[in-house]
Design a protein around this nucleic acid. Structure first.
Lengths: 199, 199
DNA sequence: ACCTGAACACCGTTCAAGT
DNA sequence: ACCTGAACACCGTTCAAGT
């Protein structure tokens, strides 16, 4: 990538290309969508695109990094107002809705690219770790309020809940199951029993 | 695909190609591995390969179908001898070990291909449903023995445990976390609390 | 500096020709 | 019937030339 002079133009172009790419990936999936399509949708030439992104994988990486953490702050507020499990279910609903709208395979694609390509995975791990940190704080607060068993390790709880969320979402996308509320109930049943304090 | 005369030769060729493909996918991932590499590894020409598989996706579909359910019978026996959770953790260990050996991204690839491509997904859904059925029977037996809360829906339990297993495996592959035993413990903690009968 | 678009390299798939 | 491998179609990326 060449040196960029105007950071504001660069930011605008990156958004323009990412938005076009999101539209294309939604329609056809990461591997089916072609760079030519993305260029047409973004109304830039191939050469221009490669000025702002070093590869196709780089685009999906930027999209993933951009989207993650969007709802972290909303979750924190909800956790304090309504309690941890209801807030977590709210977050789960948002997540499952995205899957049903066709982002399901996009998330699977991101996983598979990130697992294979370390230069793509590194920044994603960083923003994932940030989300984990935020949710972990909410777990600790809920433990102090007695909502979550105090013997559970807060960070392990977060990671397990994220894994369950992603696993349920993937399996539903795989089965073409579009009943979002059923998925939320499934997740809630798991979370309640997992977190519940024991005598 | 042309009509095949000798079913035994056909089966041998398919195995030969699938084994070569597994080796290539392990080394370089589904999308990085080329058909030329698979042909070289299997010592057949491109034309010969396409006599037995209709596409690259078809190969990964056959591999997934072939591998799934390998351990279902072993699990059933273990569930009766040692109880449900220990047997499930044994299955989990086997699953996580595969992830650590580099099949992690392969499973992510299978998910992402299957979510996008319905002709690939259909047979996979069928064999997945069979595994679910087998594990569901074990859940019912464990409920009658009082190991699992009788109020839980057996099939939902199975699906949730599968989702957790796959989610934990994917996240660990994503984080380059190779501590299999830690993953098993994480899964066991979740499963025990999820399934435990309540007063 | 920023952009264009033709050219390049590569790869999945097909098919005419061989045994 | 079964196979070969060159040819084809396509796509991610680069780069010489333009403003």
């Amino acid at each position: 990538m060449a040196r960029l002079a105007d950071p504001e133009l660069a930011e605008r172009r990156r958004r323009q290309i990412m938005d076009a790419a999101i539209a294309c990936f939604r329609r056809r999936g990461f591997h089916q969508a072609t760079m030519a399509e993305i260029c047409a949708e973004a109304r830039v030439s191939a050469g221009a695109l490669y000025r702002y992104f070093s590869s196709k994988a780089d685009i999906i990486g930027a999209i993933a990094e951009d989207k993650r953490g969007d709802n972290d702050q909303a979750f924190l507020r909800a956790a304090e107002e309504q309690g941890f499990v209801p807030a977590m279910c709210l977050a789960a609903r948002g997540f499952f809705e995205k899957f049903s709208e066709g982002d399901g395979s996009l998330i699977a694609d991101i996983f598979s690219e990130a697992i294979r390509d370390d230069t793509l995975a590194a920044p994603l791990r960083k923003s994932d770790a940030q989300s984990v940190k935020i949710f972990t704080r909410a777990v600790e607060a809920a433990q102090q309020r007695g909502e979550i068993d105090a013997r559970l390790d807060p960070e392990a709880v977060t990671d397990t809940l994220f894994a369950a969320l992603e696993g349920i979402g993937l399996r539903r996308a795989f089965r073409r199951d579009i009943h979002t509320e059923a998925a939320v109930s499934q997740f809630r049943a798991l979370a309640e029993r997992f977190l519940e304090p024991r005598k």
